[in-house]
């Protein structure tokens, strides 16, 4: 069990190192940092001095090691464009993205599992089949279209909800939250629906398929033969077995919801990490891009580790 978790942890660290290498390579291969920093009127001597001061004459492994050491202590350098520490920029934007992603994942997870179980139990029901057809839309429509559609309906036509921004936020220490104000909560609704919808339909279809599979197994049949009530079989015996494969997918999806909220953030002008990254790409702000890459790798590694941990909780066979 410990070995299993250690292996999972090691894998996560390897992933972060590999992504770190890619992020670091960007500094060397995308543009010339000296040219961006020194300006046009600098002399060759100035440039040489700057190159030496930034350690750019050191061998590659030394530079990479320094980059990793700095990254580990939260130092991602200075943004080329905003001339502020990248770590500060990330910290400023992180709450917005996390709030959006966690709420979306929660929404997708809870509603997705509930609908999936419902669709599996009432396989031939009219509502269940209607839900399945609707879910096809969720799987096949691109996220930005859903976002734009929701904006059109709820912001433009009905005027119930705002179409962009976070509304008023409350500062709690360095964290900011939109959950405590009315406009903040209203602003969350559409982005959360947009970001969570695809995941929701995916989870729902997966849960339904797995549940149908589980309901055909021998132990469900034997549970019936023991006289266990059908509801109890469905929610106690079958659902837990259904969760084993579902957790894998949900884990991966949760990672991508946090990491790739970019599209949704762009559509709703959400002041999160995704929007920061898109801006950074436009202005070739490499420290910000590198830091964002590292952040994404970290999120995926962490979620993956968590997933393995949840596995152990669900399935006793893996604990040995």
């Amino acid at each position: 069990m410990i070995a299993h978790l250690l292996r999972s942890l090691l894998q996560g660290i390897l992933v972060i190192l590999a992504v770190g290498l890619i992020a670091f390579s960007m500094f060397r291969f995308v543009g010339d940092p000296i040219a961006s920093l020194a300006g046009q009127e600098s002399t060759d001597a100035d440039r040489a001095e700057l190159t030496e001061r930034l350690g750019l004459n050191d061998p590659f492994p030394v530079q990479f090691g320094r980059f990793l050491a700095h990254a580990a202590s939260g130092d991602f350098g200075i943004s080329y464009r905003q001339a502020r520490p990248v770590a500060d920029l990330l910290a400023e934007r992180l709450p917005a993205t996390l709030e959006l992603a966690v709420l979306s994942a929660l929404f997708a997870f809870v509603v997705g599992i509930a609908l999936g179980v419902y669709a599996a139990i009432n396989r031939r029901g009219v509502i269940a089949n209607g839900v399945m057809v609707l879910s096809l839309i969720g799987v096949s429509l691109p996220t930005f279209l859903i976002g734009i559609g929701l904006i059109y309906l709820f912001a433009v036509e009905l005027r119930w909800l705002p179409s962009f921004g976070r509304g008023d936020v409350v500062h709690i220490g360095w964290w900011t939250t939109g959950l405590l104000t009315d406009t903040g909560r209203k602003s969350l609704v559409l982005p959360v629906l947009t970001l969570g919808f695809f995941q929701l339909t995916l989870i729902m279809r997966l849960v339904r398929a797995e549940m149908l599979e589980t309901m055909r197994t021998d132990y469900v049949r034997f549970a019936r033969a023991r006289g266990i009530p059908e509801r109890r079989i469905q929610f106690r015996h079958a659902l837990r077995n259904t969760m084993v494969p579902v957790v894998t997918i949900v884990g991966l999806q949760l990672g991508s919801v946090i990491a790739f909220a970019i599209v949704t953030e762009t559509v709703f002008q959400w002041p999160g990490l995704g929007a920061l990254f898109v801006n950074a790409v436009q202005f070739v702000d490499i420290p910000v891009m590198a830091a964002y890459l590292m952040f994404v790798a970290f999120v995926f590694a962490a979620v993956n580790f968590l997933t393995d941990f949840v596995y152990l909780l669900i399935d006793p066979r893996l604990r040995h």
Binding site: D218, F222, R226
Partner: peptide, 24 residues
Amino acid sequence: RRIRGKRIGMVFQDPLTSLNPLFR
């Protein structure tokens, strides 16, 4: 259902799959 398990028990062919793997 009330008769199943209480008055008539049943045993199936494959003991490897008759028990729910996730419960003691």
